[in-house]
Design a protein around this nucleic acid. Structure first.
Length: 212
DNA sequence: TGCCAGGGATTAG
DNA sequence: CTAATCCATGGC
């Protein structure tokens, strides 16, 4: 909580996720897997230029065509398949409105059953598309928590998530800003990226480096 | 110029 | 069951 306050004091409210609709959040969550957001924006722009952003319109594209449109986001063949499996599951389930009626745990299980949706992508979608009180654990979060001594480092994803959620209570607005602030912090922390520099706790190459 | 990015699935040991 | 390895573009 002290960490959250200091990040919030530094950067203020983040108003995430950068998207117009819940479905756009879902697309972005898959496209941003291990990828810089600027590349995802290019991919989404190209996609938006060709089709309305709906699961049906995505499924109407041939997979190779979809792959070409999202090329700038990297891993485009893999991600094209992932978007197809996701959209197929979404349509089969009856759409967002049906899913929105499910309890959070059930919705998470539904997401994790889809090929290409892992724990972080599922939680991005739960928090930023369905507005559920879920704490998202990404590579930055792990690295930062570990270097601050908040975790040992060998914890599993669920363990970290539940620990934070238990400590801070179910608070969608709080978790929204918390994850966004950690990512925001990563953008302007230490640009030196030299082994030995002690300027930050987040970059992979900086001092206090420990196995991620 | 090489390293890294808002991971996840598959294969190897 | 944990540890590589693959997927790939763009910014710095």
């Amino acid at each position: 909580m002290a960490l959250f306050r200091s990040l919030y004091a530094a950067y203020g409210a983040q108003h995430w996720w950068p998207a117009e609709t819940p479905f756009e959040v879902m697309l972005g969550a898959v496209l941003t897997q291990n990828t810089a957001w600027t590349n995802v924006e290019r991919a989404l722009d190209q996609l938006r230029a060709q089709i309305p952003l709906s699961p049906e319109a995505v499924l109407a594209l041939e997979t190779p065509v979809l792959a070409e449109l999202i090329r700038p986001s990297g891993y485009f063949n893999v991600k094209a398949r992932r978007l197809c499996s996701f959209c197929t599951a979404l349509v089969e389930a009856g759409g967002e409105s049906v899913l929105a009626a499910l309890p959070t745990d059930e919705l998470r299980r539904w997401l994790l059953a889809i090929n290409g949706i892992g724990p972080e992508t599922a939680d991005d979608i739960l928090l930023y598309a369905f507005e559920r009180p879920v704490f998202v654990v990404d590579a930055y979060t792990r690295r930062l928590f570990r270097r601050l001594g908040l975790i040992a480092g060998d914890e599993g994803y669920e363990q970290i998530r539940q620990r934070v959620e238990t400590a801070l209570g179910p608070d969608t607005a709080l978790f929204n800003d918390y994850h966004a602030l950690i990512v925001r912090h990563a953008k302007d922390v230490c640009r030196a990226r030299k082994p030995g520099c002690e300027c930050c706790l987040l970059n992979r190459s900086c001092a206090q480096r420990a196995p991620d």
